[in-house]
Amino acid sequence: MIPAPFDYVAPTTVDDAVRALADAGEDAKVIAGGQSLLPVLRMRLAAPTKLIDLGRVAELRGIREEGGHVVIGAMTTHYEIQRDPVVDTHLRLLRLATDTVADPQVRHRGTLGGALAHADPAGDLAAPVLAMDAEFVLCGMDGRRTVPAAEFFVDYFTTALRPDEIVVEVRLPKLTGWHAHYEKFNRVAQAWSIVGVAACLRVDGGVIAEARVGLTNMGSVPLRATEVEAALVGHPATAATVRAAAAHAAEGTSPAADGNADREYRQHLARVLTDRALTAAAGV
């Protein structure tokens, strides 16, 4: 498979990368791990004039703690996230969701920032970061700004990134001690989610003190199942609570229909999978 011709630059700093992006104009494309972009290029579904490769920008890579937050560089690979003890301790939901992404080869090349900036509604990482109230640090020619996850995802494959901006890092509040589960439903192991549910709970004295539920592929962007969350908080962490709350999972959603699932089936799956995700998370 042969992509259309393009120019290629590999800057080594965020500033150089942003400048390169601004200089190249709107037909340029940023390449991170390339696990979504390369197939598109090779099938000539996209023909950018210039690729700006972030692979050599060292400052975009790595995981660090900053007080109540864990900060993950945009170019950190899925594999690095899977193996990181800080992530496992404080961001268990992200680790569990990352475990379900594609296959080992993809997880070694693919990056958190790349996957999120791609904004595929069937991608598995957007719903968890949305549920975890992540913030995106973006950098463009006008400097840096921080965008909450709820504002970052705009539409199918569309984010709040301006043409000259790249994702620098993702800041996630520590959810230490929370119970988490990511329930992914697909047809073969390597496939995208038909529906996915990201759930995390803080249980205090047998009562659900806080609850976050994110939905994958139930709309053009990842969604928070706010009705479910509301039905959980303040209630005992029991199977009955979970079942009652999960019944709200599809409320307000308008998922796409495709060969794998029509709307009704997707909404049904959202309820079933939310029940299962919460059940697994809460251990009830």
């Binding site: 791990g33 197939p39 904004a119 595929d120 069937a122 991608g123 199918y156 494959f157 495709d258």
Partner: peptide, 15 residues
């Protein structure tokens, strides 16, 4: 054929 995400509904956002 409606878009449902994944490679089958590719558009320009890929990274």
């Amino acid at each position: 054929t409606e878009a449902g995400g994944g490679l089958g509904s590719l558009s320009g956002g890929a990274q």
